[in-house]
Design a protein around this nucleic acid. Structure first.
Lengths: 191, 191, 191, 191
DNA sequence: AATGAATGAGTGTTCATTCAT
DNA sequence: GATGAATGAACACTCATTCAT
């Protein structure tokens, strides 16, 4: 067994942080390498270039978020599922803000480069919206509902990020979940 | 009087479009100048650099959007104001998608460079949320409510932009307004 | 008689100062125009470009210095002529440092662009050296002697400029003149 | 160990030559890179920019010249030291005209960026002038004397450079040394 | 696996100059 | 006579990438 790659993990961490903090285009190879404490050339040993590194990060963390949502929802009835998904997302923001922001808040064209049938967080939420509508909520287009739900917690996260709301984000979970139920036309949960 | 400025307006238009389509960092001076059909150096007669051009565009269009919202709300009662503001925003998206996206959807650091007391669209919505809460809606933090409202229509716009919802955006106005009222805990408007 | 040129004199002054302070290449048209308080284009009404402006300044001020030296020397005997020329030069530095420095201390290729038979300060000093050698001083190549004499007061000026000698420069005139006489092998003047 | 630096030395040589021949501001990165036969970007691997390259060249060669002078003077008595220093300088001009000119004849702001206590050629000459005055020469300010001495050989070099005196410069060494002794009020050396 | 050296294409910006008013 | 607008070429410098070790 040869010596393990020393540069790979630091490069991933550094790139994730910088892509989130500065954006993809504003982040240079030099920035990443310096932040990782390795040479610029080392990056090319592990990825074919900046694009592939970003795509690698995106696919991996996208999968994490999708799985997280799927597990939060599980086979719960819609109202509970909404609360659980909301809490899971806001918890993720508090625990792993870089992952959350990179997957859900950073603008990239990376999603276009994934296979079209890739399951995305939006798909999970759309399924949830569908189930909620079927369970007696408002009569509404499920895609529109899913946009509404995502908008609720994403904009809440954005407000927290820019200091318009106090953190941690989990402290807003009940309010976001309650608003989501109102949007879906479901009765509020008892606490 | 020497000859009038011929490059200024084309540069503004081209920059607005490219900043929106590609992002600030991915857009080069050369791109802007070529799209405007003028020389690169012409830009520097009217702005001190790329940054100042972007800031100029931002301040101007930010003002437009803020005014639009203020006028839509006027002195209407909260429920009507929500509907009017929603419709005004989504109309703006259909009429001037570049302005809407540049002010509301593109990630900038530009907002930080404005005077801290500058009235922003978020402030207008926060006022509206406050009024709605006072008018008998849910008991909720107005900042949180304003995040919810903005999330609703912004994510709807985002979905339309990426093809997850069919356009024009105005066709979703009633649904967005209805969802907004549910979020605020106000009774639905009669159509 | 039409209205007088308003930009010409300010441009000359500003250019002279900036060429001396920053050097020719480091001085831009914009610098000159801004310092003169006129537009950049105004320069081209009076000179064909930056080069011609510099050459104009050089020829004019070169003539002034040459004339100053010629008049200081007049028909005086060598020893007195040396003292008078020294004093005239150092006085010029104190009165018109920009002229002195531009003509005698700034590196330019401008001298090459003058007619080869143009009488230069060096020629005046060479004549003086010749006369001094003929009048019983050291047997030396007059060109070499003229280099020595010029070196004496030019380096003194340089030292004063960079603060290695205290000003005003005229306060060193006697010492420079005495050194010049020693170089020429002439007896010291009585004061 | 990765491959050795191939561009560094050529860049130094080319920059030295061009800075001397054209001046710092008139010399572009492109000129230097082309003359060195390497890419422009290569420069930035070894220096942070044009300024740092120039400063590097200056500090190195300034040290060479200072050392050369110090060694020529050694512990010789003043009259011999003057002759030796003169010869050493003029020899340097013939052997390494670029070094001589870059350190002693080109106008820089570079000297200002060195530590204030850096020993400069002027300091060496000032020490020599002090010793000569103490050894029975003229009663004169040592700083002024050092300006005179430097002026003698610098202007001689300048005359040779512009063709007013025939080369090589070493052929003028005896004459310059003799003039220096006269300036210092010391008796001529026997040849 | 990792690196310092090197590069061609690109960055935002400034240059001296010309043009139209 | 004077100006603001406009420009092509050049500026110093950075980019993502490849190469030799």
């Amino acid at each position: 067994m040869p010596r393990p790659p020393l540069a790979r993990a630091p490069l991933r961490q550094a790139a994730l942080r910088l892509f989130v903090e500065q954006g993809f285009h504003a982040t240079g190879i030099r920035d990443i390498a310096r932040a990782a404490g390795v040479s610029e050339a080392a990056l090319y040993r592990h990825w074919s270039g900046k694009d592939e590194l970003a795509l690698d990060l995106f696919t991996e963390h996208l999968g994490e978020v999708t799985t997280l949502l799927d597990q939060a929802i599980g086979s719960r009835p819609p109202a509970q599922a909404v609360a659980a998904a909301t809490r899971a997302c806001l918890d993720l923001y508090d625990r792993e803000p870089l992952v959350f922001r990179f997957v859900l808040m950073v603008e990239h064209d990376l999603a276009r480069r994934l296979p079209a049938d890739r399951r995305m967080p939006q798909d999970v939420i759309a399924d949830l919206a569908r189930a909620a509508a079927a369970a007696g909520g408002v009569k509404e287009d499920p895609d529109r509902l899913s946009a509404f739900l995502i908008g609720l917690f994403l904009q809440t996260a954005s407000y927290a990020l820019y200091g318009r709301l106090p953190g941690p984000l989990a402290s807003h979970a009940d309010a976001v979940a309650a608003a989501a139920l109102r949007v879906l036309g479901l009765p509020p949960e008892r606490t």
